[in-house]
Design a protein around this nucleic acid. Structure first.
Lengths: 410, 410
DNA sequence: TTGACTAAATATAGTTGCAAAATAAACTCG
DNA sequence: CGAGTTTATTTTGCAACTATATTTAGTCAA
């Protein structure tokens, strides 16, 4: 039990004033208006110090001093009216990007998270492997900035969601078939070179971030977001913290082939399409089913959901089969990490009422102990974009004083 | 996307001097001797400040000033010899307790982690549910203190490992059969009332802590410790951090009943005993097997390991069956959490060479991607005790300046 | 209108905790 | 013994905060 000879690094050297200023800025971030008294009770500093720090933050462009002392419908208060400070939503902008395999979306938002502009680009199916994703994404980002009417100099942080595990530098490992590198061809380096703080993160993890702040995970200390499209990906949040894994591979779900009656990480979209098409091919699709009227091109998950909702027995049968599978996945994940809520996110979440209902019923049979709650994401197909914006905002919030505001048009 | 009205707490109010003193104490904790120059480069403070802080720490009893400036066999250095400070191992003691179902162990150690005293108490099988575990444990702790020749006033922190999930206050939830409450009947409150900093933690989590600091997990950023006895329990460490779950239930492994060919969280000890006994009962035990010569009372996991090592084919067959089960568990856990090492801990780890060898082979077949490394714990049946001591030490290290040293016999 | 009361802002005077710089001490080596 | 090197000590000054007193801006009741 001898002690090692290594001296561990300790973060000590910091400017106290800067530290306190950052704390006050974080307070202002979460509140529509901040008074000196609020900040005093939160930080333990005295009034003189707080006001001096707030004045500094006003000078540097992060805070605005609100004139309307008591006008803002607040409960009546005695005494001299307090100065009120607020975060300047227009101090800068952030960019959130969903860099999916066949669709790249960029959203520009102000510091309140309000969307200012938006741009989308589709990647043709036959170009998924060959497209130059870096320049493509660069273009979409510039288009979104143009739509927002904001110059690139005002961008404080950009966050990108990619369908690949990412390490702490935002790089993705060389996967089995190099798909991961294809999906994340050095985004981190490229956008950092544009002078922006850059966060590249797995798409399911960003979905989890979105659910936690504005979606179905809000208020829960621990939850899992299951992002389903062509493949399943999971984002774990345990006690308010995102679990990423050594190489960012937590939630990659390669293990599903060991779970009974699951056998792969294929997502809801892919499986339902496969099942219904192979049923048609093999003649297993009953003659009376409404799915016979759907063209082969549109014979996919949305069609199945729609027919099931309309009561088509064969479609319902497929949904039930999927519910069993989903329930097993949920049981494994919830049991492993002791979470009490699982959020189903992605485009399927918009039409999956029946599926979730059946999944909950199946889950109650599969688990003994209190089954986790299964909820649909309210964010639909924009969940990764929303998560990217939230992630960029939280990065900006945490590193605000390290960032330089563009004062030309603030 | 409106901002919530809640002001989040921010930890700001602290004494800068105290903060810096704590940082220097942490440096001294990890190193046999600390010079002012070391601390200067690590903290960014100047020599005058560092020396003033060190003198404070010497006055308060945490550090000792070493006289032997250059005698300690260090490489030759020019100039005036530096003062050298070191943590006082005798500034206080910590207590680590393994409060298992049928055995309660207490270990007293100094701040270097050197064992000073030890005491054990067995809980008779028929008293497991009725014993007053709090007073029993209290007695074992006092016996260990007496064996160490230390007064209770010198205890800085006590950590207890219990076979139950624990929340952040050290309490366990009311489980299915109240077994958890039985195993953790308010330890946290009881020992806090003795004036000691108290940490109650799940036993598998403590095993993980032990492996991380002095066992097979040392140096790995992410690993899982699989504590196997009657039941499996897992401790997850991902990126250096213990994952506890909302109610401390991460690692309870209820999920195993969904994994193909596993079906329960029963541990290696329980299963091997069941398998070999039911083989004997049903006549499946071959006449030539050495296991026929073992009395029914001793027909358990150690006997199977021993016979298998001696080459008994039936025992080897049981080991292979267990290896398949273990490999599946490891594959699921490693796949879900992206860890690259799994440590098998507990009493079985001492004799499980053959089992692990077979498990590794099976694991390579079950997973495609780089299989996680499977290693045996070097800590044997003392792993939970060792983890409890390490946990108490790390708590003491992190909260040193909040603790009061007993100056009567320091 | 006036004065009592309240709560915040402002001004002024310490206090703490650190850095910077100059000086002194302890040691090695030629 | 003195030049060179490294650390310790002392002095001085500054940055950042606290504490306290005073002023300001409002409400409310008589």
């Amino acid at each position: 039990m001898s002690r090692p000879m290594v001296i561990q690094p300790v973060a000590v050297s910091f400017s106290q004033r800067r530290f306190n200023a950052a704390a006050i800025l974080r307070l202002a971030w979460d509140v529509p208006a901040l008074t000196a008294s609020d900040a005093m009770s939160e930080t333990g500093l005295t009034r003189s110090t707080v006001i001096a720090l707030c004045d500094d933050l006003v000078d540097s462009g992060w805070l605005a001093e609100l004139a309307d002392a008591r006008t803002a419908g607040e409960a009546y208060r005695k005494g001299r009216p307090a100065k009120r400070y607020a975060l300047r939503g227009d101090a800068g902008v952030v960019v959130g990007v969903d860099a999916g395999p066949h669709r790249i979306t960029a959203t520009v938002a102000d510091l309140f998270g309000r969307e200012l502009g938006h741009a989308v680009e589709h990647v043709p199916t036959d170009a998924i492997e060959t497209a130059n994703r870096v320049s493509l994404t660069d273009g979409v980002v510039d288009a979104a900035l143009a739509a927002a009417g904001v110059s690139a100099a005002r961008v404080l942080c950009i966050s990108l969601g990619v369908p690949a595990p990412t390490d702490q530098n935002g790089a993705s490992p060389e996967g089995e078939n190099s798909f991961w590198r294809l999906m994340n061809p050095g985004f981190a380096q490229h956008f950092a070179a544009r002078g922006w703080a850059t966060v590249v993160e797995n798409d399911a993890n960003l979905a989890a971030v979105a659910e936690g702040s504005i979606g179905a995970g809000a208020g829960a200390p621990s939850y899992i977001t299951l992002l389903s499209g062509e493949r399943f990906g999971a984002g774990y949040v345990v006690n308010g913290q995102l679990i990423r894994g050594t190489r960012g591979g937590a939630g990659e779900m390669r293990l599903l082939n060991l779970v009974e009656n699951v056998g792969s990480a294929d997502g809801i979209g892919l499986l339902l399409r496969d099942w219904v098409r192979s049923a048609k091919d093999s003649g297993a699709l009953p003659a009376g089913s409404a799915l016979n009227n759907v063209s082969l091109n549109n014979l996919d998950a949305p069609a199945v959901f729609q027919s099931a909702d309309a009561g088509d027995p064969f479609a319902v049968q497929l949904i039930v089969r999927m519910a069993d599978r989903l329930a097993r996945i949920c049981a494994v994940l919830a049991g492993l990490l002791d979470v009490d809520r699982i959020v189903i996110a992605g485009a399927v979440a918009e039409a999956a009422d029946l599926l979730l209902e059946r999944t909950r019923a199946r889950l109650a049979e599969v688990t003994h102990t209190p089954a986790p709650e299964i909820v649909a994401s309210p964010l639909g197909s924009g969940v990764v974009s929303a998560g990217a914006v939230r992630r960029a905002l939280s990065y900006t919030r945490d590193h605000a004083l390290d960032l330089v505001l563009d004062d030309t048009m603030e």
